[in-house]
């Protein structure tokens, strides 16, 4: 804090100027997108960016003419279910690695570790066939089932569980708690910060899926929002820039809000995942 006092005024101003320039660079594309989403497409086409015909017409159009709400709903549903499933299954497997003793635990652990090296993108061919054989193409399940658990989540929670004091388990043993009770009544509430962090990751991860839903969904009824936007963009609306920008804005604004609200958790989660 003493540094603040020592900083000279011109230098302070210079810093602010630089910060504002950087902000403009980072936010530029947002601002351009948001601004044009308010302009009539005619003005955009004519290059009349400084037009004053600002309105929410594009947004109204987006809601009325495109299935953007359906897409958003699909994504919300898929992401929510995926998140809940990951929280449960990752915490369960992390529990097994931390609190259970059984033969082959090391081997299984290494197997889990190994899955983090295998990119899902390189496994789409057999997975597509699997999902097809299961009759799940063009369903929500196709986009949820493969991501019910994650090795990353298991590791993150394992790290967190390992930090718990041994005495909590011992106290639970004396109280006579079984594994399920200990897991549910103590381990889960004790690690809720990590769980929230993982939940945020899981949600955004599912929300940002692109390749897999593109392969497995063919109708707007199930298409999540990322692929929905692509659909809109490739359809006849292609040149209706104002409305396209409005759809993008509709998608990004909620995410931004979630992000700013939950920033604290992301940071702590990333630091856990990164280098301490």
């Amino acid at each position: 804090m003493e540094m603040v006092a020592k900083q000279k005024l011109p230098q302070k101003i210079l810093n602010y100027v630089l910060l504002i320039i950087l902000t403009a660079v980072v936010l530029g594309p947002f601002l351009i997108g948001l601004w044009t989403s308010l302009l009539p497409t005619m003005d955009i086409a004519k290059g009349n960016f400084l037009s004053l015909h600002i309105s929410l017409t594009n947004y109204v159009d987006a809601f009325q003419k495109t299935p953007i709400l359906q897409y958003l709903g699909n994504s919300l549903w898929i992401s929510t279910l995926t998140t809940i499933a990951q929280l449960i299954f990752c915490s369960m497997s992390a529990y097994a690695f931390v609190f259970l003793r059984f033969r082959g635990r090391k081997v299984l652990f290494i197997l889990f570790l190994a899955t983090m090296m295998l990119p899902f993108e390189a496994e789409i061919i057999p997975n597509f066939m699997t999902v097809k054989a299961m009759g799940l193409l063009n369903t929500y399940s196709a986009m949820i089932v493969p991501f019910l658990t994650s090795a990353f989540g298991t590791f993150m929670l394992r790290q967190s569980f390992l930090q718990m004091p041994d005495e909590l388990k011992e106290a639970a043993d004396i109280e006579g708690l079984g594994h399920f009770q200990f897991y549910w009544k103590i381990v889960m509430p004790y690690n809720r910060i990590s769980l929230i962090t993982l939940g945020a990751y899981g949600f955004l991860g599912a929300w940002n899926q692109y390749l897999w839903p593109m392969l497995t969904t063919f109708s707007n009824a199930f298409r999540p929002v990322q692929n929905g936007l692509r659909q809109l963009q490739s359809e006849e609306t292609f040149n209706d820039w104002g409305m396209i920008q409005a759809t993008a804005a509709i998608v990004v604004i909620p995410t931004l809000i979630v992000l700013f609200v939950g920033q604290h958790y992301f940071k702590s989660g990333m630091n856990e995942g990164a280098v301490k």
């Binding site: 004091p165 005495e167 909590l168 011992e170 106290a171 043993d173 004396i174 109280e175 006579g176 103590i186 509430p189 004790y190 809720r192």
Partner: peptide, 21 residues
């Protein structure tokens, strides 16, 4: 006998309190 069947309680050095309760 498992701990719970011994009918005893234990007070730990670091108290082992549940921080969320």
């Amino acid at each position: 006998l498992p701990p719970k069947a011994r009918k005893l309680t234990m007070v730990f050095q670091n108290y082992a309190l549940y921080p969320f309760l």
